[in-house]
Design a protein around this nucleic acid. Structure first.
Lengths: 342, 342
DNA sequence: ATATAGTGGGACGTAATATAACCCACCACT
DNA sequence: AGTGGTGGGTTATATTACGTCCCACTATAT
């Protein structure tokens, strides 16, 4: 039997793509407000005219407001976005995709965000929004949150805000001093903490330690303190990297690169490298959270998107903790689904 | 707070008239199938091109099928029509209109069908469909149904079909031999009975009897039998006429016409004439069901539509039995609502 | 058997609309 | 004070929608 929305879609087939595109526009305005026509058109890979036509209608409907500084989403607009999210995701097959991944990888929850991470600038923002929402909706007093680096994890920052929970502590999941300060764990924990009026602990350490230096560090007070935090972490927020990409970004030694290639490393997460079968084949020699500690954590939020990371995801999720909440984009999810069915 | 359909409508305001017109087309095809583009266009007062565009889409969606003899509604199409009826009526404000009349006239149920009885040929069919549905859904074994004449009542015929109830008897609510055989009570009861595999009783009598003839008739066996039926009628299906119209159609005597005008007759139902206050001011002198017998009937179905009958409706419903189910068209309902608010 | 009214599909010139690419005055930052 | 981004306006052009016929066919009624 047909449901009413199905019947409606049957009678008005052209409604579906229209709704989807208009929803996307309104959603993007909400995320990037205030924003102008041209910037919006660039961001969504649409023509200025198309944007103009749709925004005119949205403005007429009172979902959008045009100010001197650009277009902003009205309160009504936000309500509409919230109300229709489930419907749009359902129609786009995103819910089904999510369920598929959820079952296959045996994860707690999977959220698939519409669009292509590589094509659309707003996807990263969407990922962050969903992830932040997931995190905040389950946060509790005295929570200890381990956070890794990376663009995906960084995307949460703008959506974190103080909740009625207190005494949350963000800790950098790994020590490190890198080039891209903006994306580093140490930077992120301080940003996150600031957004949420919470505490944070950083760990500034060289990325690659010699065996002696490593052993020496283990007894340092600041390190033992961090280890204690790692042991009591209630939540881990992390990204998933493709092995090559990560190794290059960390400008690993030629020796390390050789080892990684030799051992068939495909994915990386919290300093561990996994091969295609999900086995740990290497670990960055630095202070950081242990995989076992991640496994014991009550909640794990994994954020990763983009087609280029599909292989890495397929590898890592062979061993990922079951309590993981995974947030990704449509393109990656579809690619995963395809590789599973073939 | 906004509901999902409301939010949808907010985001896609142009969807509403489109849905409405497309629904109307599909509905009309169902009622008049097989039907061609041009006939359909004439019937709906639309251009052929518009009909063509919409039917092309409907055909593509598998809701319609084009045969040599014309377009027909597929099974899927009928399902879609059923599923969306409530939604379309709701959006058109028909449900609200119906509730308004229901409350004001204190009736059991009011159904308002979209469109203008005078403009659109399909409205009569729609009225009949709804009325027939109401009747059949409440029919029971051994039911005695009194039926009057008129186009509105006749419209039920094509939608009546055998149900799992037995021993239904249709009886002509009034005796009569008129010109328009197709619309006469005697003709209708036989048609209704044939459609439903039921019994029927007719009463062929002159319309206007002299006092002596009337008194003589009362003792006739066929008349007394009918009287007994009237007394046990469980259901009355009738139309509502405007007084002038009816009097003319029945080519009443100049004397009667004078009396009617003098007494301010506005509406007519089962041979009774009512003035604007709903008081009985006249009665056709012929054998027929008594108003008191109608009042005692378990169910009363009144069918009447068209702007020209609004005054009559306003008059009759001042005294209509509370168990009446009233089926009318949008234009009439709106006119009534307006006259109530002013 | 034949006439006729009605059918779906096709075609075409025209009218209406959408489109892309600008310009402009203005504002908020830097 | 400069500069990049903003919404609004405009215009020639491309595209689509539209109304209106024509055609071959068929089912029904005469």
């Amino acid at each position: 039997m047909l449901s009413v929305p199905e019947a409606q879609q049957r009678l008005l087939p052209e409604m579906y793509p229209l709704l989807q595109s208009r929803y996307r526009i309104l959603q993007t305005v909400q995320l990037m407000q205030p924003i102008g026509r041209r910037t919006l058109a660039d961001s969504l890979k649409m023509t200025e005219r198309e944007i103009r036509k749709e925004t005119d209608i949205l403005r007429e409907q009172g979902l959008l407001d045009s100010q001197k500084s650009g277009m902003v989403c009205t309160d009504d607009g936000e309500v509409v976005i919230d109300k229709l999210r489930a419907l749009v995701y359902e129609w786009s097959g995103l819910t089904q995709l999510a369920k598929l991944l959820e079952n296959h990888f045996d994860l707690q929850h999977v959220i698939v965000v519409p669009g292509d991470y590589n094509e659309d600038d707003t996807i990263l923002t969407l990922l962050g929004k969903e992830a932040a929402q997931q995190f905040m909706s389950t946060s509790f007093d005295g929570q200890i949150v381990a956070v890794t680096g990376g663009k995906s994890v960084a995307s949460l920052a703008q959506f974190l805000h103080p909740t009625d929970t207190h005494n949350i502590t963000f800790v950098a999941a790994r020590g490190g001093i890198g080039h891209e300060m903006q994306m580093q764990a140490n930077t992120l924990v301080s940003t996150f903490a600031m957004q949420m009026d919470a505490q944070y602990r950083t760990l500034f350490l060289p990325e690659h330690l010699s065996e002696q230096a490593y052993q020496a560090m283990l007894t340092e007070p600041m390190v033992t303190e961090m280890m204690k935090y790692y042991d009591h972490a209630n939540c881990v927020i992390h990204g998933i990297g493709s092995a090559e990409e990560m190794a290059v970004r960390r400008n690993s030694s030629p020796e390390d690169l050789r080892i990684l290639e030799e051992k068939g490393a495909v994915s990386e997460a919290f300093g561990y490298y996994f091969n295609a079968e999900g086995e740990i084949v290497h670990r960055i020699r630095t202070i950081g959270i242990q995989f076992e500690q991640v496994r014991r954590s009550k909640q794990v939020i994994a954020v990763a998107a983009g087609k280029q990371k599909v292989k890495a995801m397929l590898s890592y999720f062979k061993v990922a903790p079951k309590q993981t909440i995974f947030i990704t984009d449509e393109v990656a999810a579809k690619a995963i689904a395809e590789s599973l069915s073939s």
